[in-house]
Amino acid sequence: MIGEEIREILMTTREFKAKMSDEVKDSDSLLQQGIVDSFGLIQLVVELEARFSITIEPDDLQKENFESIDSMVGFIEAKRA
């Protein structure tokens, strides 16, 4: 469910949608494939905060938390717990 919502953000937000496709797997590295770059991550963080009602702190900013859809799901679940 969370994964689908993240995928929807990536498929509909202008910053990412040109580079995002259905072929991108949940485990694929979004950073490595260039779907999310460092400036795009700023937009993604804002979208995640708004969509999932979470607050992302500087200490949460670790590559492992934003690497792929799977890792973001794990991160958001942990934040909500």
């Binding site: 460092s38 400036f39 991550l41 700023i42 963080v45 804002v46 905060e49 992302i56 702190e57 500087p58 200490d59 900013l61 670790q62 590559k63």
Partner: peptide, 24 residues
């Protein structure tokens, strides 16, 4: 990129958006 937002002087500058922008 992920280290700069954790610096104390960067944290004082603003919210997560500013910190990430500075990191980038």
């Amino acid at each position: 990129y992920f280290y700069i937002p954790t610096l104390s002087w960067v944290r004082r500058l603003g919210g997560i958006r500013v910190q990430l922008l500075l990191g980038a």
